[in-house]
Structure formats: C-alpha cells, structure tokens
Computed example of a mutant assay.
Amino acid sequence: MLISTAYAQAAGGAGSSSELFATLFPLVLIFAVFYFLIIRPQSKKMKQQKAMIDAIRRGDKVITAGGIVGTVAKVQDGGEVQVDIAENVRITVIQSTIASVISKTEPADKSANDDKEKDKKSKD
C-alpha cells in the first residue's frame, strides 16, 4: 500500500508555565506600550485642560474651540462664560469650549483690598 496509516495525536495537556508565559507576554507588552505612550499622556493632558478651564477668571484672554479670541467679561454659574470679542460685542460660551488661555490676569492683591477698606472706614 502506498498510503501510510494515520494515527491520532495524543491529547495535549495544559502545557508548561513557560508556554503560557510565552503566549501571554506579547499581550501584556502591547498593553504596557499603549498605556505609557497613549493612555497616560492623554489623561495628563485632560487633567491640565480641566485645571486651566477651572482657573479662568475675569480679564483672561482666551481662545474658544471655534477660534474666537476674546477677553472674559464674566464667569457665570452653570459652566457659562461671557466673552468680549469686540467693542460692545459680548457672547456667551460654554466654559468647556475654551481651547486655551492666552494671557492670565494677576489676582487682586489682598493687602491692597485691605488698605482700601481701611481708607473707607477712616473716611466715615
């Protein structure tokens, strides 16, 4: 006969731990690369963006996501910001649509406010 007899292969066991490691290692390595190159930097960037948006105050010069450049006139409750974009032109935008802050205003000096209050009291 020209055709040899085929025998069934014996059932394989669970395999050794080195085989299991060799099959799972590439998956773990891929996840680690994705985490350090994509997920982690993106979450840091999102945290910085949120902190920047939360720190917006009156007088800050901002750029909206639509490309409108203006100065913050008023920060309202509910996540809205009124922005002056030209003389006598004020628009209301959602605070989360602000893409970046060009220039920040200096916070009011607390000692200067205290001096003004003292002057008012001394005049009375």
Rank of each mutant, 00 (worst) to 15 (best):
M1H: 08
M1T: 08
M1S: 10
L2H: 08
I3Y: 05
S4G: 12
S4N: 12
T5G: 04
A10N: 10
A11T: 13
G12I: 06
S16G: 14
S16H: 07
S18K: 13
T23P: 08
F25Q: 12
P26L: 00
P26N: 07
L27F: 09
A32F: 07
V33Y: 08
F34D: 02
Y35D: 08
Y35C: 04
Y35I: 02
Y35F: 08
I38H: 13
I39V: 08
I39C: 09
R40F: 04
R40T: 05
Q42Y: 04
S43K: 11
K44V: 02
K45N: 07
M46F: 04
A51I: 02
M52D: 03
I53H: 05
D54F: 05
A55S: 09
A55P: 00
I56L: 14
I56C: 02
R58P: 10
R58M: 14
R58V: 13
R58G: 05
G59Y: 00
K61P: 01
V62W: 01
I63D: 01
T64I: 01
I68Q: 09
I68G: 09
V69G: 11
V69E: 05
V69W: 02
V72G: 01
V72P: 00
V72K: 01
V72T: 01
A73C: 00
A73E: 00
K74F: 00
D77K: 08
G78V: 02
G78L: 03
G79K: 00
G79F: 04
E80L: 15
Q82T: 02
V83M: 13
A86N: 13
E87S: 15
N88K: 10
R90S: 01
I91N: 10
I91Q: 05
I94Y: 03
A99P: 03
A99N: 10
V101E: 11
I102F: 13
I102H: 15
S103K: 06
K104G: 01
E106L: 14
P107R: 14
P107T: 11
P107M: 08
A108G: 09
S111P: 02
S111R: 03
A112R: 06
A112N: 10
N113P: 09
K118M: 03
K118Q: 08
D119C: 11
D119P: 09
K120Q: 07
K120P: 10
S122Q: 10
K123A: 14
D124E: 08
